[in-house]
Structure formats: C-alpha cells, structure tokens
Amino acid sequence: MTISDSSFAFVSDLARRETAMLYDPGKEYLVEARLLPLAREAGCTDVDAYVLRLQVDAAERAKALDALTINETSWFRDMAPYQAFTELMLPSIVARREHTRHISIWSAACSSGQEAYSLSMLLDEHLPPGWTAQILATDISHKMLARVEAGRYSQVEMNRGLPATSLVKYFSRAGSEWEVNDNLKKMVRTQHLNLSTSFPPLPTFDIVFIRNVLIYFDLDVKRDILRRVGQVISPDGFMLLGSSETTLDLDDHWDREAHGRVQVHRPVGYANVPAFSPQPTPESIAMTGA
C-alpha cells in the first residue's frame, strides 16, 4: 500500500508552507514511513485515510509535521567545526570582548540539543575565568525544544560522538538515560523559532551554528535566511554551516575562511572591525553589510 499522489502533494505542500522543508516527488517512501505510525495510532487504516484527517485536524497536523522533520544529530558532529570553535572562533571573540566578558552563541535548528551542549562543554573547558556565555538553542519543533530543556539522552544517543571523558564529567545516570549537569544546562536557553519566517527580536550573536538545516530549503529561502542571520550576527562574528552546505553563490554578505577541514563564514568587512568595538547596533551592521 503506497501513498496516493494527491495525499503526497498535500503533505509536501503542508511541509513547505509551515517549515519551508522540501519533500520532492521521489520522497513518497519517506513520508509514508514517517506517517504510518501516526496513522495507526490515530486508528486510520492507511496513510491516505490519515491525510484526509490531517486536512481537518490542526493538532494532528502539528504532530505530522513533527514526525516529518529530520532530527538527525550527534555530539560534536563532524568534529572539525568544534575544533575551529576552540582554536579559532573562541580565542578571536575573547580577544575582542574584554569590555563585556560575555559571549553569545546561537544554535539555530538545534534538534535535540547535542550541538548546543557540545558547545557548552567546550565553553566550560576553554572560557577564561570571569567570563559568561549564553547559548540560545532554537528549533521549529516544540518536541525537540522540550528535549533540550530536559537534557536527557538515551544510551544510543550518548554513544554518538561524545568522548567518554566528557560523558563522565558532564552527565549522570537518570534511569535508562543520561542527564546533562546543571552547569551546562544553565548556559543553554531555548526558544521556538521558525527559520523560514521573519525572526522574533534576538540578541546579537558572536557565533552562529546553523548546520544541516539549509539543505532542506530551496534557494530563495536559503538566501533569505542567510541574509537575516547577517542582521543578528556581530560584524566580527562567525557563522558555521553544515559540511555539505555553503554560502557559495548564495549571498555576497559573507566571506569564507578555511580552518582545517571546515569553512568558516564571516560577515563581509569583518577584518576592518576595530577590536573592543562597542556592541553593534542594527544600523552599524547594515553599514558594514553595504
């Protein structure tokens, strides 16, 4: 039993409208695999019947969207970005924020939080004494945000890329799961945010990780998101994309700099930003971006 063309069209339309995620023809198997468990739970005979239900039931639509998003993530994913974080980004920002002694980081599309907590571990180890840091973890999925707040991970998730020394240092057992300690939790704040629509008011970020999410959007949406990230990043800040993502031909507001195996993106003109500059205002960003 496979999903009908019209059901698939409805679902891909819904996903595109609500999250900007693309489910192109050929992804029928994926939609079906993800919706079938929900269909069964809702007592529908098959996915097509469930899609009919979606057309009238908003709560069920929210559930379906949650199931359709891809939440794949891991600790220190791809490693190289995190090396660049400790070796390049953190020292550079620390050298330039003597006046505030505060670092502000955004984990955009944070999924279950491994990215945000990986960064918090590095901050715990490398941030100079007397400094503070805040990581804002955002996602479109409320379910994922709840997971970030709980900070609890299954055995299988723990095994994915987390060094054993960090496991014993930052986690304790909580039933069949492991829970991240309060020190790290204090650094991480969550907020619901849909990348494909205009952003709510946000602080200015020194470092933005926006990884493995742009791949799901079409070119115009990608461009628009990168432009809007440019408005909330400090002019001497850093942006990290996923290993298969790049700003190439996307947006000329960003420069690329190679560090080891990763491309680090920086607002154009970052080299001219004086050190110890006061916190930039939105106007000053618009000026450097011009």
């Binding site: 299954s154 055995q155 299988v156 039933g175 069949s176 799961e177």
Partner: peptide
C-alpha cells in the same frame, strides 16, 4: 527498575 526504563533499554538493544 521501572517498567518504562526496562522497556526503553530492551527496545534500544533490539533496534540496534
């Protein structure tokens, strides 16, 4: 042990 914890870990062993 709680039923939920046991169920979760058995499930993990199984799917892995």
């Amino acid at each position: 042990p709680s039923y939920d914890d046991v169920q979760m870990l058995v499930d993990e062993v199984w799917t892995s």
